[in-house]
Amino acid sequence: MAIRWGLCGAGKISHDFSVALKTLPAEDHQIAAIASRSSDRAKEFAKKHSIPKVYGSYEELARDPDIDIVYLGVLHTEHWKVGLLFLQAGKNVLCEKPFAMNSRQVKDLVEAARKTNVFLMEAIWSRCFPVHAEVRKLLAEEAVGEVKLVKAYFGSPQLHIPCSVEKELGGGALLDIGVYCLQFVLMVFNGERPESVQASGVLLDSGVDESVVVVMKFSRKRMALCAFSIAARFSNDAVISGTKGSIRVLGPMHCPTTLVLNDKKTEYPLPEPCLPLNFTNSTGLRYEAEEVRQCLLKGLKESPRMPLADSVLLTEIMDEIRKQVGVVFSQDRK
């Protein structure tokens, strides 16, 4: 039986997610409904993606008994409020990253999911890519010996995009793209809390971070270095250096198709999209959709690839980075 998806939000990421779902078997995944606060946008979206049900409010989607899981593709600033709406209505939720604006909000979402006994996952799609699965396998086999340093870089010039630069829209390099570098480090170190986090960054006039460098120290003399920017283009790769070699995830490291183990390169091609995409390698969203399906079939309430504890720790680290760099959102004061 197909997993019946309800899409919340008719923006660019929901479009790409819909296109990605079409690369999977129709008997496994179906988009049953789309909800947007603008009924016109929802209708237009439904027409483009052949979605049978259209809702002009999120509340209507939350009440639909024929939805197995809601994909939350709204603005960062909306994740907490809208996430709670669906979780309290007893709906399983896949919420786009960043999970929420701070760790307090993330803990609220986790608590709500546990209270209503539903599935909840932060949509860190990177974790579901074959390249990341191979990285975890190589680390488990100690293919590069003991890991000593992890480096992850993500720079993408997007100062022209309002939601990247405006504080009221949850902008800044950290929440938008830095999250990918940090989650990679946590994946390599198995969700271990760093012993120390040191961050330095520069802010835009709007008060959000433009570029940030983070150094983290972990137990057993292991280190991590992350750099991310919404003003410059970086190599966007990630490197794991160990006592016996290195693993390199070639850019784009957040949705990768190429892995290099020492000098051996392996490619993991993506399927072609049926419609133009808004973001790089977006058909790779299929991997997280299938991960969700497998979790629901097994009756799991969270994904072993992106456990809720990792999401909480990730946001706590981001809170600390923002504190050091000097980025404060209105959500922090509540």
Rank of each mutant, 00 (worst) to 15 (best):
Met1Ala: 10
Ala2Leu: 05
Ala2Glu: 07
Trp5Glu: 08
Cys8Leu: 06
Gly9Arg: 03
Gly11Asp: 12
Lys12Glu: 15
Asp16Thr: 08
Ser18Ala: 15
Ser18Lys: 04
Ala20Trp: 00
Leu21Ala: 11
Ala33Met: 10
Ala35Trp: 02
Arg37His: 12
Arg37Gly: 07
Asp40Asn: 14
Asp40Leu: 12
Asp40His: 09
Val54Ile: 15
Val54Leu: 11
Tyr55Thr: 05
Ser57Cys: 14
Ser57Leu: 01
Tyr58Arg: 09
Asp68Thr: 13
Ile69Asn: 01
Thr77Gly: 00
Thr77Ser: 11
His79Cys: 10
Lys81Met: 07
Leu85Glu: 03
Gln88Lys: 13
Gln88Gly: 06
Gly90Leu: 12
Lys91Cys: 06
Cys95Pro: 00
Glu96Gly: 14
Met101Cys: 11
Asn102Asp: 14
Arg104Tyr: 14
Gln105Asn: 07
Glu111Gly: 03
Glu111Met: 04
Ala112Gly: 14
Val118Met: 05
Leu120Asp: 02
Glu122Gly: 09
Ala123Ile: 06
Pro130Asp: 09
Val131Met: 02
Ala133Ser: 04
Val135Lys: 00
Val147Glu: 05
Leu149Val: 11
Val150Lys: 08
Val150Glu: 08
Ala152Ile: 07
Ala152Arg: 08
Ala152Cys: 13
Cys163Ser: 12
Leu169Tyr: 10
Gly172Tyr: 06
Gly172Gln: 03
Leu175Trp: 12
Leu182Arg: 02
Phe184Cys: 03
Val185Phe: 07
Glu192Asp: 09
Pro194Val: 06
Pro194Ala: 11
Ser196Ala: 12
Gln198Lys: 14
Val208Cys: 08
Val208Pro: 06
Glu210Leu: 10
Val213Cys: 05
Val213Arg: 07
Val214Ser: 04
Val214Arg: 01
Val215Trp: 02
Met223Glu: 08
Ala231Thr: 05
Ala238Gly: 13
Val239Trp: 05
Ser241Ala: 09
Ile247Cys: 00
Ile247His: 00
Asp263Phe: 02
Lys265Arg: 15
Lys265Phe: 03
Pro271Ala: 13
Cys274Pro: 01
Phe279Pro: 06
Gly284Thr: 09
Leu285Cys: 11
Arg286Leu: 01
Glu288Ile: 10
Glu291Gln: 08
Val292Ser: 01
Val292Arg: 01
Val292Gly: 01
Arg293Gln: 04
Ser303Asn: 06
Leu313Thr: 04
Thr315Lys: 12
Glu316Asn: 10
Glu316Cys: 08
Arg322Thr: 05
Gly326Pro: 01
Val327Cys: 10
Ser330Pro: 13
Ser330Asp: 15
Asp332Trp: 07
Lys334Trp: 10
